[in-house]
C-alpha cells in the first residue's frame, strides 16, 4: 500500500496551481488535505502523474463574511468549523456537521474545498452545499466561474470541475438569523462515513414554516434534496416547542415519509437501498425535530 510515482509541485498561489494544472494535460490532481486522496493513492486506486500541493496557498485558507454570504476558502480545514464560525444558524449548522467529519486528526488536515471536490456522496460538506444552494468558484486558465451546487455534483467522486480547474472557494448563502437548522446522521461507528445523513433548514415566519430545505447524503451517487417533502412543509405550523416529537404533530413524519419515497437510493455492503429509505425517514424527521426544538 505505497503510492505510485508522481511529480510533485508545491505552489504558493492559486494562479500558480492553475498554471501547473494547465501544463499537466489532465494528469494532475490537486492535493489539499489529502485525507481522501492519499488513502486512494496508497491503495493505488488513484494514481495521478502530477500532484499539485496547495497546502501553502495562504489565500485559500480564509473565511470571508460578506453579510449575506459566507465565503469559505478551499483550504479551510474541517476543524475550523467545530466552534461556530458565525453567531447565526449557519455557524450552528456547520458546527453540527463538522463534528461528524471523520475523526479529530482527519478534521485537522482535511479541507472544506477538498471534500467538495472529492464529491463523496456521504460527505457532510457536499450535503451542506446542496442544502444551502451554495456556489462553487472554480479558477481555470480562462478565469473564474461559479457553479451552483445543483450542477456541481455529477456522480460519485465526479464534479463539474474540469481537469485544469482549481476549486478556490464555496459561497454559502446564510439562512435568515431566525432560521432553524438540524443535522442528523447514522453511521456504523463513530467517525465513519454516514450510511445516510439528513440536513434541514427551516425558515419561519409568524409561527409558520415559510420555507424548508432538506438535503440528504449517503443515499445515492450524489447529495440530493427532497423537494416534495420541502413543499409539503411550506405553510405548516411549527409544532409546539415542548412536544416536537409528539404523535399529534405529524407534519414532520409525513414529510420524512415522503422524502424516503421520492429520493432514489442505492445499496452497499452496509445497507440495502431499502434500508436507506428507512434511514431517510427517521433521520429527516429527527433533523426537522431538532431544528424545531431550537
Amino acid at each position: 500500500m505505497k503510492p505510485a510515482r508522481f511529480d510533485y509541485h508545491q505552489v504558493r498561489t492559486a494562479a500558480e496551481a492553475v498554471s501547473v494544472l494547465a501544463q499537466s494535460g489532465g494528469e494532475a490532481k490537486v492535493l489539499a488535505g489529502g485525507q481522501s486522496l492519499v488513502p486512494a493513492m496508497n491503495f493505488r486506486l488513484a494514481r495521478p502523474e502530477v500532484l499539485v500541493d496547495i497546502n501553502r496557498v495562504a489565500e485559500l485558507d480564509r473565511l470571508t463574511d460578506e453579510g449575506e454570504i459566507l465565503r469559505v476558502g478551499s483550504m479551510v480545514r474541517h476543524a475550523a468549523f467545530e466552534r461556530p464560525v458565525d453567531d447565526g444558524p449557519l455557524g450552528r449548522l456547520l458546527s453540527m456537521a463538522a463534528r461528524h467529519v471523520g475523526h479529530l486528526p482527519i478534521r485537522i488536515r482535511g479541507t472544506f474545498g477538498g471534500s467538495l471536490a472529492h464529491a463523496d456522496p456521504a460527505a457532510e460538506w457536499c450535503v451542506i452545499a446542496r442544502l444551502l444552494d451554495a456556489e462553487m468558484v472554480a479558477a481555470g486558465p480562462g478565469g473564474d466561474r461559479r457553479i451552483p451546487a445543483s450542477e456541481f455534483f455529477h456522480t460519485v467522486f465526479t464534479t463539474a470541475l474540469e481537469p485544469d480547474e482549481l476549486l478556490i472557494e464555496a459561497r454559502l448563502p446564510k439562512p435568515s438569523p431566525s432560521a432553524k437548522v438540524g443535522f442528523k446522521q447514522f453511521s456504523r461507528r463513530a467517525g465513519d462515513f454516514a450510511l445516510t445523513m439528513a440536513a434541514a433548514v427551516v425558515e419561519v415566519r409568524g409561527g409558520e414554516i415559510a420555507e424548508a430545505r432538506i438535503a440528504l447524503g449517503g443515499v445515492s451517487d450524489r447529495p440530493v434534496r427532497a423537494p416534495g417533502a420541502e413543499e409539503m412543509l411550506r405553510g405548516r405550523p411549527l409544532p409546539p416547542s415542548s412536544s416536537s416529537s409528539s404523535s399529534s404533530y405529524t407534519a414532520f413524519a409525513d414529510a420524512a415519509e415522503h422524502a424516503s419515497g421520492e429520493v432514489e437510493t442505492i445499496g452497499d455492503i452496509h445497507g440495502s437501498a431499502r434500508y436507506r429509505r428507512d434511514l431517510i425517514r427517521v433521520l429527516t424527521r429527527r433533523a426537522l425535530e431538532q431544528a424545531a426544538a431550537q
Binding site: 485525507q35 492519499v38 496508497n42 479529530l104 486528526p105 485537522i108
Partner: peptide
C-alpha cells in the same frame, strides 16, 4: 495506511495527524 487505525498518529505543529496520509 488508509487513515483509519491511527497507529501512525504524530504531532505536526502541535496537532495530531495521520502520518500515513501526508
Amino acid at each position: 495506511e488508509h487513515g483509519v487505525c491511527g497507529a501512525c498518529t504524530v504531532l505536526a505543529d502541535g496537532l495530531p495527524v495521520r502520518s500515513c496520509l501526508m
